[in-house]
């Protein structure tokens, strides 16, 4: 019997939803960004220069190793603490992981605009009352929304 065509890859936004399904407590937000895909993804991919511009807790990012899509990053927060992250980066898909945190981005072209989704997840969950949990999720959602807005502004500036 003949095989069907090679199946298409999973859309990055759908892929992020699948990843989130396996990470209990992960928070995902998305925003339709008024900038072309290449400009938006240029911001995400430029980790060393762009990350401190949209992530308020990060002071510095350095790529210390790279092999194709796989990277190792040294991330310094605004308090001066350093953490190593393993990452995978390709157009439309970025996932970064440290022993304590998972960060991911996914992007889909929408004509001249871009749908950008952003996931944040704590790998070491702290037991907390339900009320605190919902407060935490709201706080993370607000933080992600601000970051998505900042990315839109950077992408728009870079485009103009």
């Amino acid at each position: 019997m003949n095989d069907p065509m090679t199946p298409p890859g999973i859309d990055p936004i759908d892929r992020l939803a699948i990843l989130a399904a396996a990470l209990p407590g992960a928070v995902v937000r998305q925003r339709r960004i008024a900038a072309p895909f290449d400009a938006v993804w240029g911001v995400i991919a430029d980790m060393e220069h762009a990350t401190p511009r949209y992530e308020p807790g990060v002071a510095r990012v350095r790529v210390i190793e790279q092999h194709g899509e796989l990277l190792r990053l040294l991330v310094e927060d605004t308090a001066g603490r350093e953490e190593t992250m393993d990452a995978r980066l390709r157009p439309g898909w970025c996932i970064m992981q440290s022993p304590t945190t998972v960060i991911a981005f996914a992007a889909r072209r929408l004509g001249n605009e871009t749908l950008l989704a952003h996931l944040e997840h704590r790998r070491v969950p702290t037991p907390m009352p339900r009320r605190s949990e919902s407060h935490y999720r709201r706080a993370v959602s607000t933080k992600i929304d601000r970051e998505l807005l900042a990315i839109e502004m950077i992408a728009s500036q870079d485009t103009n």
Binding site: D3, P4, T6, P7, P8, G9, I10, R15, I18, L19, A22, L23, D86, R88, I95, Q97, V102, A104, H121, R123
Partner: peptide
């Protein structure tokens, strides 16, 4: 590793399972 919440392991598992799941669903 994926079961323990290793996101890069989950990402790789998705690479491995995705085409098979897709083919089965398409049929």
């Amino acid at each position: 590793a994926a079961q323990q919440g290793d996101a890069l392991a989950l990402d790789r598992l998705l690479d491995e399972l995705g085409p098979y799941v897709r083919r089965l669903c398409a049929r």
